[in-house]
Design a protein around this nucleic acid. Sequence first.
DNA 1: CAGTGGTCTAGACCACCCT
DNA 2: GGGTGGTCTAGACCACTGG
Lengths: 257, 257
Amino acid sequence: MDMHIKELRKFDEPLYKWVKRGLIELIGLGTWRPAQAIPSERKLADGFGVSMGTVRRALDELVEENVLVRHQGRGTFVTAHDRNRYLFSFFNVCGHDGQRIYPVVSLIDFDSLRADASVARSLGIGAGTKVVRIRNLLTLKGVPTLVDEVLLPASRFAGITREGVAERNGTLYQLYEEQFMQSVTRIEERLRATVASAEQARNLEVDPGYPLLHIVRRAFAVDGTPIELRHSFVKTEHYEYSRTLHEADRGLGRDRG
Amino acid sequence: MDMHIKELRKFDEPLYKWVKRGLIELIGLGTWRPAQAIPSERKLADGFGVSMGTVRRALDELVEENVLVRHQGRGTFVTAHDRNRYLFSFFNVCGHDGQRIYPVVSLIDFDSLRADASVARSLGIGAGTKVVRIRNLLTLKGVPTLVDEVLLPASRFAGITREGVAERNGTLYQLYEEQFMQSVTRIEERLRATVASAEQARNLEVDPGYPLLHIVRRAFAVDGTPIELRHSFVKTEHYEYSRTLHEADRGLGRDRG
DNA sequence: CAGTGGTCTAGACCACCCT
DNA sequence: GGGTGGTCTAGACCACTGG
């Protein structure tokens, strides 16, 4: 097994939380890649020196958070996020009739800049730190519908290039996961109404001043730290933003673990 | 204890699912009212003739679904849908800093009309059926922020009056639950950007043409049928719409087991 | 203080999957 | 058959709550 768990247990922390943190750490280090199996529950229990029930509880929470997937009789696997999984999870734009459509993404611009105070706070990095900026136009069934600006902390995406982004297969989040070992498990979105700037109007083929849906999104990695800040501007003439909420899905400050 | 569990276990059903169904049944029958404690885990284990771990698993799921609430050292209680619970569950407007504020609601208008084809389809009723219309202005910290129009199928809200709505304590959803036995457990929201009409502008103290967030909401009862159609128009100058999404919260057709 | 839920153990037996 | 996860047991000790 060779588990080098150097981390100490936190004061007053339940054992299963410690096991969970340890597993997140090991996954983050790339010990097991997406779609690969992790050791069996019995082996993990031995490795961590706890009972199977305790390991099971840690695994339960990681499965609930979609970090792991269990297959009876086969094993427990690190979640692999294919195109559909990410799109259906986090792309909430659909037709007025509720129909979900695959967007065609075209890269408008790729550059880097220094984070101002607001961006730095949102990404949990120091002001003046280098961030990568990606700007896209999303077209749905031939209708230019959404422009966005994605900001990434350069330190977590070392080696990212315009070509890598432009020539990717699938979603940006798959790129984060496959190339940079950053899986998105949670997003936070704030929505406002605004009006189109000259450039947005040009891209979306409307007049300046046309009302747009402005979505500010922060995406979080498995360890709970922010890895992306994204501003999206949506023309809602033919498409709209859609979500179903269950009472159990509380709005803020939810603790799933 | 006196548990008259007549229900038989289903074939191939796990024990804890049977316990869970039994508890839901007993709660539905009014054995324990909202805000009342249910028997302790040990007593339930005895009553059902299973181990505590099995009871615990059933309770875990009911807590996750917000049917029960646990308080260490005190007991396990049937959830009461008070003002805070409904507000935090379904009112997603907050300050730009994320701060949640209690809205002050004032009734603009109350009347009834016949459903047109679109409304009828949204509410799952026949075209021409009578619907009640409630229009409100919501003010946050003195700032008029949201106007909405609520449409209810009159048949499910027999006896609803302007006075009953105006003089309610708490949210509309509490009114639905307490007066009309219609608990809201799920909502579906679609968001668009639009511009203020003359009347909306007057109510929200902006100029006509000001960009507004337009939220179309359908609310569903426990049995999954729609009971409310609501159009909200939000001035997002000082407040905004906010949601946190976990990957586990999939958009459509989710089954919470 | 006694009673509650929160955590944890060290197993058991089963259904399922792969070889 | 041998290994996996799925379920279940019959306890243990702890922290917290209320009287």
